[in-house]
C-alpha cells in the first residue's frame, strides 16, 4: 500500500552557466581583442603604426596572420581556434594588470596608457591564438 507522498528535489547547481568557451570569449572582449581584429591591425594604417610602437613586430604579425587564417578557417581549424582562445585567456591575464575600460574610439583610446596596456594584452592573446592556427604539428 503506497499512500500519496510528496517530494521536492533539492535545488540543482547553476545549470545556466556558460561553457568554457563563452568565458574565454568574454575575457577576450574585455581585453579588446575584437577591436584589434576588426578595426585595427588589419585595416587601419594609423592604428597599425601606433600598435607597432606599442608591441613587438612578431606579435602584430601573429595578429595579421590570424586575420588571414580566420578568413579561411575550416571547422577543424575553428576547433583549434577555440583551444587557442583558451590559451589566449591565460596570456591576456598575465599581461594585463587591469581589465580594459569600456570601448571608445581606438585612436582616442591609444592616447590613454591604460588602453595601450589593454591592447598589449590583447595582442599577446592574439599571438597565442595565431600560434594555435599554425601547422598542426608545430610546437
Amino acid at each position: 500500500m503506497a499512500t500519496s507522498l510528496g517530494y521536492t528535489p533539492p535545488p540543482p547547481p547553476d545549470t545556466a552557466a556558460r561553457d568554457d568557451l563563452d568565458d574565454l570569449v568574454r575575457a577576450l572582449h574585455e581585453s579588446g581583442l575584437l577591436r584589434a581584429l576588426a578595426g585595427g591591425a588589419r585595416s587601419y594604417p594609423v592604428l597599425l603604426s601606433q600598435l607597432l610602437r606599442t608591441v613587438d613586430a612578431s606579435t602584430v604579425r601573429s595578429a595579421i596572420a590570424l586575420a588571414g587564417a580566420l578568413r579561411d578557417a575550416r571547422p577543424e581549424q575553428a576547433e583549434r581556434l577555440a583551444a587557442g582562445l583558451r590559451d589566449a585567456r591565460h596570456a591576456a591575464g598575465e599581461v594585463a594588470a587591469a581589465p580594459a575600460e569600456g570601448p571608445l574610439g581606438l585612436l582616442r583610446r591609444l592616447r590613454d596608457p591604460d588602453t595601450r596596456r589593454g591592447i598589449s594584452a590583447a595582442l599577446a592573446a592574439v599571438a597565442a591564438v595565431g600560434a594555435s592556427l599554425g601547422p598542426a604539428d608545430r610546437d
Partner: peptide, 13 residues
C-alpha cells in the same frame, strides 16, 4: 572575412 571567421568559430562551439 572577419564575420565569416566568427561564424565558423561559433559553429564549432
Amino acid at each position: 572575412a572577419l564575420s565569416n571567421a566568427e561564424a565558423t568559430a561559433r559553429a564549432a562551439a
